[in-house]
Nucleic acid binder design. Structure first.
Lengths: 231, 231
DNA sequence: CTAATAGTGTCTATAAGACAGTATACT
DNA sequence: AGTATACTGTCTTATAGACACTATTAG
């Protein structure tokens, strides 16, 4: 069977980004009002076409989406999966390479000029295309990976206390984490270093401030075992 | 910044499949001599262009590659990742959605008319494009996932003994597996059922024959913990 | 001193691995 | 009976969780 022409004109190649952060009421996802058809005006994941002349790969395209649409640079940006089919986009047969990114809460304000709306992942509005399914898969990945890795540190600012980081883990995993196990785990991962300054916790014993060692800023550290929960 | 025309003509959209099986000397990957430029004649992963008119998605396209190029149907076919960039294919900016598949050794013969060559993953010939990197990532995924799931059962035929299955796990993981832990794990996963017939092991006590329960034929069962090895 | 949170020491529970024992076939 | 392999009982070891204790701050 002969192949179609090399430059197949009928496949749309796009990139979408599930940009997550953490607020007081849990994980939030960044949504943006679409500025063109289809679904003009509807809230959707930041995304767009891959620009072959501009992007070095889909990862670079995803980073560009974050820069152009949310006005920020995310140190953690990982491929989630690729979604495709004839019906997910009314314009035609489409392929969307989806990435997910985690940013600390403060990063929201950096791109304050952008039109990003943050929505709790527990109260998602209806989303166009297959974006609801995409967000659910991203959440599943983040929760699963948080069980055995340092992923959640990317939801913290540059400096944080262990009780703060523990609260972040609990917010992501949706369950309490054992304090002793947590501190043991963070020690074993060996990616945190104490900062000599301290931080008052309300009006009580102040907690040690930590930060991620330079070597671990962009990736994640993995553990062979799991903190709480089930896979 | 305006988007390019909807039907961007400059992105090649392809699918590649890392098809794995198990031989006496370990995991083997299916390679096929390319029948056209670029790299005509070179051994490469089975793959090809997505056909929008024919494929319901990239998963379907990968299944079609297996059918057309290897003459077989794989019950286990999962997305690995998507590879992209301007330089990986000399024809231009390309996106390849890569899947991996596991088949039992006998399945090789079903597609005997095909030109598939099986190569040990430990002695890969030089591969074109970024196929070497792709195979390595697929192996890493299979090995990692085998630690906490039933993935390797797809490398067995329909009926097998537990000692046989244990040997498959050991071949994939590249290390010995504790016998008691292994049997406990298989019991907990609860996806195997005994077949009343038995099977002679050389000239000694015969082993019980098992098969995967119907409900678990196509997917994998997951365990919260890990068998040997480190992540 | 009290209250409240940070951090640690230590016991318990659970699950994986080691090892040796029993079971069952063939020669 | 001998032997090789299948299978199991049970002890040991490793690690996560529970719980209580100490530490340090403000008021």
């Amino acid at each position: 069977m002969p192949h179609p022409p090399v430059h197949s004109p009928t496949i749309l190649c796009t990139v979408d980004v599930v940009l997550l952060t953490l607020a007081v009421d849990g994980l939030q996802v960044a949504l943006l009002a679409r500025d063109r058809a289809p679904h003009a005006g509807a809230l959707a994941l930041p995304g767009g076409f891959v620009h072959p002349g501009e992007d070095a790969g889909t990862h670079g395209a995803a980073a560009r989406m974050l820069r152009e649409k949310a006005g920020l640079h995310s140190p953690y940006l990982e491929q989630l999966a690729t979604f495709s089919g004839p019906d997910r986009d009314p314009r035609g047969w489409s392929v969307s390479v989806v990435y997910y990114a985690l940013v600390p809460p403060m990063a929201q304000d950096v791109g304050a000029t952008s039109a990003v709306e943050w929505h709790s992942v527990d109260r998602l509005p209806p989303l166009p295309f297959d974006h609801t399914e995409i967000v659910h898969q991203a959440l599943a990945r983040v929760r699963s990976k948080s069980q055995y890795s340092s992923l959640p540190v990317h939801l913290c600012g540059e400096r944080f206390t262990l009780p703060q980081l523990k609260a972040v883990y609990e917010a992501v995993l949706g369950e309490r984490v054992n304090q002793v196990s947590f501190r043991r785990r963070m020690d074993e991962l060996g990616m945190l270093e104490p900062v000599v300054g301290e931080l008052v916790g309300g009006a009580h014993r102040p907690a040690q401030v930590w930060r991620v060692k330079a070597a671990h800023r962009t990736g994640v550290s993995l553990s062979a075992r799991v903190l709480g929960g089930e896979r």
